[in-house]
Design a protein around this nucleic acid. Structure first.
Lengths: 341, 341
DNA sequence: CTCCATTCGGCAAACGTTTGCAACAGATTA
DNA sequence: TAATCTGTTGCAAACGTTTGCCGAATGGAG
């Protein structure tokens, strides 16, 4: 039914091994023969069967990409960049969604293990132990998680969180809320730690609300709790929650940033579209996707197991403004900065 | 290195064919033997090699999912639903992104063809001829495109567009703009046709602006052109463009919906988050993803080649309001409807 | 006790490639 | 002229499964 290497061999009067070499080791075959084989292959519409090739070479030329939630706008740019980058290197990508469930995640990794040359684990929710265990079954690169000895690319979200908190403190806020993300998220712990340390160092207060599922609804649902704390500024685990909160606050007649300032994290496409436009920490997700693919594909060559940290940047927009203790001078400076964008 | 069927056979003292049957035809093996084999398999950490299985059965248990742009928020919910649904049926999903390029799309289909049991082509940009050609290489289900004889699931966007135009006409608008989508999009042609017919039937005017890439930037860039037409209402190819336009109009001091009404299509997650909240046509993308997977997997059994049409609904929010010819009565009714949400 | 039916498990071929080895021709070297 | 080398091709085994076929064992019927 499908045209195989054998059909091409017969049609061009050579042995199948010559046809094989024409594709996988062209320099070993006479240019004349090669072009003849290529011509008949083209004419017959031959395409190598990757499964058969994988069986004998042990390399599938496929990679797995596992994310917590495809519909979370944080991931699509990463998936897109990774897929495009992988394809350029002649790899195809299995994409799978764990729905934020560590058990599904584990199942998925094991199911995919035999079928791919490696797996990109993005924002995994599994425990370190589980990850350590599966890395013995399949080459792994994790994104947004730091595990010693495991190749990883992380966005330096701690730095972003510190910048965000400093920005808020500089605006004269003295009581902040951290609207936490999901349990099991390394990013969540990093943000929490960075925000806590920075607030404490300045003698200000930080209230942590959570853990929460990282979706808009929980952000909206948290509005009441946020207001009860009496805080005047909120740092959210991600933009989705920040936007939910923003909207919910406005529905309650709370002025943002007049009464409460809100900062998100990720800089998803929509954070610039809501009103007020969201102040947020930009994550280089596309670069992370490409880097992770590169690391995964190089992993075969040497055993190099680097950990790449990508820079994050605070983007100041209109959802943050002066707090109750705003010093006149700083206030002007910050307002100027805010107005600019 | 990896544990194979042979290792399991040796360890449990049976022939490899028995091990094979234990997994692929359990009823043919003695329950006692079966449980013994399963136990040692479990203990050894055996997992069937899908490539080898595919080689002999001809079924890979993989499907391909090709979309125009992963980062376009229209697609992630579809991808997510399709992937989850496929996995439940023990299929893995290759996801690939064509960047709206028909040539890349064709390459992709052919590259994936040998590696999957079928391909889901979402909003393809290829010509009908090209699609006809590749469908001979691999089972296909198309989403959002109607080609006779080819299994398809389409969202009845024509219906949605008619509803949207009627809504605008009812509000007293007499000159509309259709902000068109990309060339090669079936959806685009459907909307254009439906909008044209409905406007014409009412004796109103429709100006078509386009074709355009279906992204926010082109929506924003079109603001000037929209204003020049003198139209008071705009239907956009998708929410992304509608949102871009919305924002650009506001930046120019144009009140929406006071001076210009804007309607989008898709109801992506963010259309409810921008201000004013976007009136739009909701597409059941998740259902489309699931249905498409079902159709693809059933295709093997019989040759059934249905075409499923999914309903779309107009969601009236705040980006549409009375036009210059608003009849007092209709105006009140519509305003009431608008305020409700 | 014999015969037949049924159940179970082994044997071996096959799927479409890759690849080490050997064969051969022609060219180069001593 | 013989020996060696180089470039090109063929041969056959191997990768990890599935599956049609056959034989052995078991048990029930007569």
């Amino acid at each position: 039914m499908a045209v195989t290497i054998r059909d091409v061999a017969r049609a061009s009067g050579v042995h199948i091994s010559t046809v094989s070499r024409t594709f996988s080791a062209p320099h070993l075959v006479n240019p004349e023969t090669r072009s003849r084989v290529l011509a008949t292959a083209e004419q017959l519409g031959y395409r190598p069967n990757r499964a058969a090739r994988a069986l004998i070479t042990g390399r599938t030329h496929n990679i797995g990409l596992i994310v917590a939630d495809i519909a979370n706008p944080f991931f699509p740019p990463l998936i897109k960049a990774a897929e495009t980058h992988a394809r350029r290197r002649d790899y195809h990508v299995f994409v799978a969604d764990t729905d934020e469930d560590p058990i599904v995640e584990l199942d998925l990794v094991q199911a995919l293990a035999k079928q791919v040359d490696g797996i990109l684990l993005c924002s995994p929710r599994m425990s370190d132990d589980q990850i350590e265990q599966v890395r013995r079954e399949v080459p792994l690169v994790v994104v947004n998680r730091m595990i010693t000895g495991l190749p990883a690319v992380v966005m330096d979200v701690g730095h972003g969180a510190r910048e965000a908190v400093r920005h808020l403190l500089g605006l004269g806020h003295r009581h902040l809320v951290y609207l936490a993300g999901p349990r099991g998220s390394w990013t969540n712990r990093e943000i929490r730690r960075a925000a806590g340390a920075t607030t404490r160092a300045a003698g200000a207060d930080l209230t942590v609300l959570g853990p929460n599922q990282p979706v808009e609804e929980t952000g909206a649902a948290a509005a009441e709790a946020v207001l009860r704390t009496g805080a005047t500024a909120v740092l959210a685990y991600n933009d989705l929650m920040a936007i939910g909160l923003l909207q919910s606050l406005q529905d309650r007649g709370v002025d943002v940033p007049g009464q409460v300032s809100v900062v998100g994290i990720d800089d998803i496409a929509y954070s610039g579209l809501v009103r007020p436009r969201l102040t947020t920490v930009a994550n280089p997700t596309a670069a992370a996707g490409r880097t992770a693919v590169d690391m995964l594909l190089q992993q075969g060559d040497d055993g190099a197991t680097g950990q790449v940290t990508l820079r994050t940047d605070l983007i100041i927009r209109n959802s943050t403004g002066p707090g109750p203790y705003a010093p006149a001078v700083a206030l002007n400076a910050e307002v100027a900065a805010t107005v600019k964008e």
